[in-house]
Simulated assay, not measured.
Amino acid sequence: MSGESTPEQELERELLSRTALGVFRLNGQFLAVSEDLARPAGLTAAWWQVVGAVLHEPLPVAGIARAMGITRQSVQRVADLLVTKGLAEYAPNPAHRRAKLLRPTPAGRDAVRKIEPGHAALAARLGAELGEEGFAEAVRVLERLSEALEAVAEPARVPEP
C-alpha cells in the first residue's frame, strides 16, 4: 500500500504542479514585458534587474543574488557586463575586502530612468485590469508563496523509496 496516495495527497500534487506551471508562465510573461521595456533604454531585462537592485544602495554580488533568488554566478556575469558597458562600477566594501560592492554609474541611472514611463504605464494598465485590491492581493499571495516555498524547500530532497 506504500504506492497508493490519498485524495488529499493527489490534490496537493495537482496544486503544486498547477502553481509551478503558472509561475513559470508568469515568469516568461514578465521576462518578455521586461525585455520590451528595457530594450529602448539599451538594457536587457537581466541588466535592468541587476542595476535596479543597486539603485538605492550598493550591494555585493552575493547580496543581489540572495535578494533576487538567483545564483551568484549569474549575477556576477551580468554585473561584469554592466561594468564593461559603463552602466555600473565596483566599489570597495568596508565590510569585506574581497566582496566588492556594485553600484550604478550615472549612465546606468539614466538608462533605468528611461524605462520609468513604460514601467508606470504597465503598472497603470495592470492596476486597471486587476483593480487596486486585486493587485494588492496578487502581491500578497506571491510573497506568501515565496516565503512558504523557502520555508519548506531547504533543500528539496527526494525521499528514498
Rank of each mutant, 00 (worst) to 15 (best):
S2K: 05
G3A: 04
G3Q: 02
S5V: 14
Q9T: 08
E10T: 10
E10P: 00
E10M: 03
L11T: 10
L11R: 09
L11A: 11
L11I: 14
L11Q: 12
E12L: 15
L15I: 10
L15F: 07
L16S: 02
L16Q: 14
L16A: 15
R18C: 02
R18L: 13
A20E: 06
V23I: 10
V23Q: 05
F24V: 15
R25M: 04
R25V: 06
L26H: 14
G28W: 07
G28V: 04
Q29D: 11
F30H: 03
L31D: 09
A32F: 06
A32Y: 11
A32V: 13
V33A: 15
E35Y: 06
E35W: 02
L37M: 02
L37H: 11
A38G: 01
P40A: 06
L43G: 04
L43R: 09
T44D: 00
W47H: 13
W47A: 14
Q49H: 07
V50T: 05
V50A: 03
V51N: 04
A53C: 06
V54W: 04
H56N: 13
H56K: 02
E57N: 06
P58F: 12
L59G: 03
L59K: 12
P60W: 02
A62Q: 04
G63I: 08
I64N: 00
A65P: 10
A65T: 08
Q73R: 12
V75L: 02
Q76L: 00
R77G: 02
V78Q: 12
A79N: 07
L82R: 07
L82N: 03
V83H: 07
T84S: 05
A88H: 00
A88P: 03
E89H: 00
P92G: 13
N93G: 08
P94R: 09
P94E: 09
R97Q: 12
A99I: 00
A99D: 08
A99Q: 09
L101E: 02
P104G: 02
T105Y: 03
P106Y: 11
P106M: 11
P106C: 07
G108W: 11
D110I: 08
A111N: 06
V112M: 15
V112T: 07
K114T: 05
I115G: 08
E116Y: 03
H119L: 01
A120H: 15
A121L: 11
A121P: 12
L122R: 09
A123G: 10
A123T: 15
A124K: 15
R125M: 04
L126D: 03
L126T: 14
A128K: 14
E129Y: 01
E129Q: 13
E129D: 06
E132D: 13
F135H: 08
F135P: 03
A136H: 05
A136W: 07
A136R: 13
A138V: 06
V139K: 15
R140G: 05
V141I: 15
V141E: 06
L142V: 14
E143T: 09
R144A: 15
L145A: 12
E147Q: 09
E147V: 10
L149E: 09
L149V: 07
A153P: 01
A153V: 10
E154R: 15
P155S: 08
A156S: 10
R157Q: 13
V158D: 00
P159G: 03
P159L: 04
E160A: 06
E160V: 08
P161A: 14
P161M: 01
